[in-house]
């Protein structure tokens, strides 16, 4: 699979996109979220600078997906302040959605539509200019040009996840959220996704990813955050951290195996 060199990330984004008065693209202060009286996020304080890649790891039920849902405006916070690209998540949700892309374990793709029809649909929803040209760029970037007019339902899980990345970057968002994108992928697909993520992260795009893969944290992320029972219990520089150190910290702080 060939990946176009400049398909994602190598762009001066912040001067055009940023609307706040702090250097942070993602800011959460005292973020609380509960479901049915059970607090899932218990006062999260998190700041992510422009171009920074932060990996959030934690056991199941730690609140990783809920954190992503709140940051992407899918879920309303119970308390706390959240700003993305300088905009308040409660007041400017629609504008924030335009500035963020998400790759999840769900692909958000329609099985009965072709890859082209899926991208065309999302492109229209995001008002992507020169849409056909952009579809060609992103589909080439994820190496699916030959399957562009095939129905997504006929794709393997790995191909669907690659198409999901194409969908997420279609509108060229300055912030990317990756919510356990590795879920359900075999080793070959994982290796391919890992390559795509490296290209995605290499640019100036701000990335927040949740993952169970510790090696992605230590290889790809500038910072590693461990979330446990809805609280941040670890926040250290990531890239270059020994995997064994990370595993040991994780075991010690969460009481879970890795």
């Amino acid at each position: 699979m060939s990946i176009a060199a400049d398909w994602m990330g190598k762009r001066a984004i912040v001067s055009d996109d940023y609307r706040g008065d702090t250097p942070y693209m993602i800011e959460a202060e005292g973020l609380v979220k509960s479901f049915g009286g059970r607090k899932v996020l218990r006062g999260i304080d998190l700041r992510v600078k422009e171009g920074e890649c932060v990996a959030v790891i934690g056991p199941n039920g730690a609140g990783k997906t809920t954190l992503i849902k709140v940051l992407t405006t899918l879920s309303r916070p119970l308390a706390g302040n959240v700003r993305l690209v300088g905009m308040d998540i409660r007041k400017e949700a629609v504008a924030i959605r335009r500035k963020s892309g998400i790759v999840s374990h769900h692909t958000f793709l329609y099985d009965h539509l072709t890859a082209h029809e899926n991208l065309k649909f999302y492109g229209k929803m995001y008002d992507v200019p020169d849409l056909d040209k952009r579809i060609t760029e992103v589909i080439d970037a994820v190496g699916l040009r030959a399957r562009l007019h095939d129905r997504v339902g006929t794709f393997s899980r790995g191909m669907q996840q690659r198409l999901s990345i194409a969908r997420a970057i279609l509108h060229d968002p300055p912030i990317m959220f990756l919510d356990e994108p590795e879920t359900g992928l075999d080793q070959e697909a994982l290796a391919m996704l890992s390559g795509l993520l490296k290209t995605l992260i290499a640019g100036k795009r701000t990335v927040l990813m949740t993952t169970h893969r510790f090696e992605w944290g230590s290889e790809l992320a500038d910072r590693i955050v461990i979330l446990h029972s809805g609280k941040i219990v670890f926040d250290e520089p990531g890239r270059g951290m020994e995997l064994s150190t990370l595993r040991e910290s994780y075991r010690r702080l969460t009481g879970a195996g890795s």
Partner: peptide, 18 residues
Amino acid sequence: VLEKEKGCLEGLMLCPVS
């Protein structure tokens, strides 16, 4: 129902539209 498959409803809700 169609929207719930593969989380497409979330995909729709993530679009920058009211």
